[in-house]
């Protein structure tokens, strides 16, 4: 029996090289990016020395945080519940708005290129402004409290889900759409009957990530007065009540982990 080495491997065409040398302009861009990265260390004040000098302070802080103070557990539980409610309502409303905006912002479903550009701009604007900035704007507009936080989460979710929903609709197999088009279906019927079911796994995935993101955001929003447990954490830290702060951090940890576990479970059931 012949082994593979017994076969003569002869060919007359030129074999392509394993690696292609990139053009000069690409090399210049890579080098410039590398130099900028190195320079960014000074801009970010990155210091290994300061990090190690800070370790004793971290240890002292952790010591002062233990054992966690459970005396205010009732008010902290209420704040945590409000945080989750803000996240849930904000994320669900944001997801619903994203769904309609994404239809207009996907190339294959938009009624007009101008509508596409406008909705893409709205989504990009919602996404590019950080959530804390939105929170400050809404606190100034509707006052301190959970409503400002909920509005912030809605806008933040629209920025996140709007983009991913639109991309999901563009990336699906367009065969079923063509089939319904030949049947004489209108654009809306095609979107509801063919596009949405095909993009649904991606919608669910993005929505669950949006909920996780909303829960994490809603914790921080309280720092600027937009409701939730964040304000409790800020007050505890400002008053040097580190044991109370530890309790709040544990509750936040449990909330975030709980939502993440639910998200993983829901994804495994739906995909």
């Amino acid at each position: 029996m012949k082994s593979i080495s017994d076969y003569s491997l002869t060919y007359h065409s030129e074999m392509p090289g394993r690696f292609d040398l990139p053009p000069i302009w690409k090399i210049v861009i890579y080098l410039a990016a590398a130099i900028f990265f190195v320079w960014s260390f000074s801009g970010s004040a990155f210091s290994v020395k300061d990090f190690f000098n800070g370790i004793p302070n971290m240890i002292r802080l952790i010591k002062e945080m233990t054992p966690p103070d459970l005396s205010r557990i009732s008010s902290i539980s209420k704040a945590i519940l409000q945080t989750f409610q803000m996240a849930l309502v904000g994320a669900i409303i944001g997801i619903a708005i994203s769904f309609f905006l994404a239809i207009l912002a996907s190339r294959s479903n938009t009624p007009h290129p101008a509508v596409y550009s406008l909705t893409r701009f709205i989504i990009a604007f919602c996404r590019s402004v950080p959530d804390l900035v939105w929170a400050v704007i809404f606190v100034a507009s509707v006052g301190l409290g959970a409503f400002a936080g909920t509005l912030t989460i809605i806008v933040d979710t629209v920025g996140f889900c709007g983009r991913f929903f639109a991309e999901a609709m563009e990336e699906i197999d367009h065969g079923p759409e063509e089939a319904l088009q030949t049947i004489g279906a209108g654009r809306m019927a095609i979107v509801l009957s063919a596009v949405v079911p095909a993009a649904m796994p991606s919608f669910l995935n993005s929505s669950l990530y949006a909920l996780e993101k909303a829960v994490r955001s809603s914790v921080v929003l309280g720092l600027v007065g937009a409701g939730g447990v964040g304000i409790e954490l800020k007050v505890a830290m400002d008053m040097f009540e580190y044991q109370t702060a530890a309790t709040i951090i544990i509750f936040v940890f449990l909330l975030v982990i709980g939502v993440e576990r639910f998200s993983v479970y829901a994804r495994s059931r739906c995909m």
Partner: peptide, 26 residues
């Protein structure tokens, strides 16, 4: 006019009955 494609072009994740009902959309 009915058109049957090589790749069937059924809507995934929907039931067979839903796919057949789609024929009446137009």
């Amino acid at each position: 006019v009915g058109l049957v494609f090589q790749r069937h072009n059924l809507v995934p994740r929907l039931s067979v009955l839903s796919n057949v009902i789609h024929g009446a959309i137009g």
